[in-house]
Amino acid sequence: MSGREGGKKKPLKAPKKEVRELDDDDIALKQKLKEQQKALQEAKAKASQKGPLTQGGIKKSGKK
């Protein structure tokens, strides 16, 4: 328990990832995911324009 061993230890460096070439399947998959994300964003925008799903109802106060 010497004073020099205190504090956080540095983590080991992770090996660098290999740069790999994208083939046609990878490009098609990325394009499909991008289109799905865009469609999801548009659906969220349309849903937010309609307003809240609930219209109120009976509100309860915390008092008895």
Score class of each variant (00 low, 15 high):
36 Q>N: 06
33 L>C: 13
57 G>F: 06
59 K>V: 11
47 A>G: 02
20 R>G: 00
41 Q>V: 01
19 V>P: 05
35 E>T: 04
25 D>V: 00
35 E>N: 04
8 K>T: 05
27 I>V: 13
21 E>P: 11
51 G>S: 08
38 K>R: 13
35 E>V: 08
38 K>M: 10
13 K>I: 14
26 D>H: 02
16 K>A: 15
13 K>P: 15
17 K>V: 13
10 K>G: 05
39 A>D: 13
61 S>V: 12
60 K>V: 08
49 Q>R: 02
21 E>A: 15
58 I>N: 06
55 Q>V: 11
38 K>Q: 10
42 E>S: 07
41 Q>F: 03
14 A>S: 14
17 K>N: 09
15 P>K: 15
14 A>H: 12
32 K>Y: 14
2 S>F: 03
5 E>C: 00
18 E>N: 06
64 K>D: 07
22 L>C: 10
43 A>F: 02
41 Q>L: 13
24 D>S: 13
48 S>Q: 06
40 L>S: 06
27 I>N: 00
34 K>D: 11
25 D>G: 01
3 G>R: 05
36 Q>S: 06
2 S>P: 12
48 S>N: 01
45 A>W: 03
29 L>P: 02
26 D>I: 00
34 K>W: 11
29 L>E: 15
12 L>Q: 11
51 G>Q: 09
4 R>S: 01
3 G>A: 06
39 A>K: 12
35 E>S: 03
32 K>P: 04
39 A>V: 01
57 G>I: 09
45 A>D: 06
31 Q>A: 15
43 A>H: 04
10 K>C: 01
32 K>C: 03
40 L>V: 02
11 P>N: 10
11 P>E: 14
51 G>W: 13
8 K>Q: 04
62 G>W: 13
40 L>I: 02
48 S>G: 04
44 K>R: 09
17 K>L: 15
33 L>H: 01
11 P>R: 07
13 K>C: 08
15 P>R: 11
20 R>A: 14
24 D>C: 03
34 K>G: 06
51 G>E: 09
55 Q>F: 09
54 T>M: 04
39 A>N: 13
3 G>K: 02
10 K>R: 12
17 K>D: 08
7 G>A: 02
3 G>V: 11
36 Q>T: 04
28 A>V: 01
33 L>G: 03
10 K>E: 04
19 V>W: 06
42 E>L: 02
57 G>Q: 12
25 D>H: 00
14 A>P: 09
58 I>S: 02
39 A>M: 14
19 V>N: 07
56 G>Q: 12
27 I>D: 00
49 Q>D: 12
14 A>R: 15
10 K>A: 14
9 K>W: 07
34 K>Q: 09
45 A>P: 02
58 I>R: 03
22 L>H: 07
28 A>G: 08
29 L>T: 01
30 K>V: 10
35 E>K: 08
10 K>M: 06
18 E>R: 08
17 K>H: 13
29 L>V: 03
52 P>W: 10
52 P>V: 06
64 K>L: 10
31 Q>N: 12
43 A>W: 01
62 G>S: 04
63 K>L: 08
25 D>I: 02
19 V>R: 13
44 K>Y: 11
47 A>N: 07
12 L>K: 10
40 L>N: 11
26 D>W: 10
41 Q>D: 14
25 D>T: 00
58 I>F: 10
33 L>Q: 07
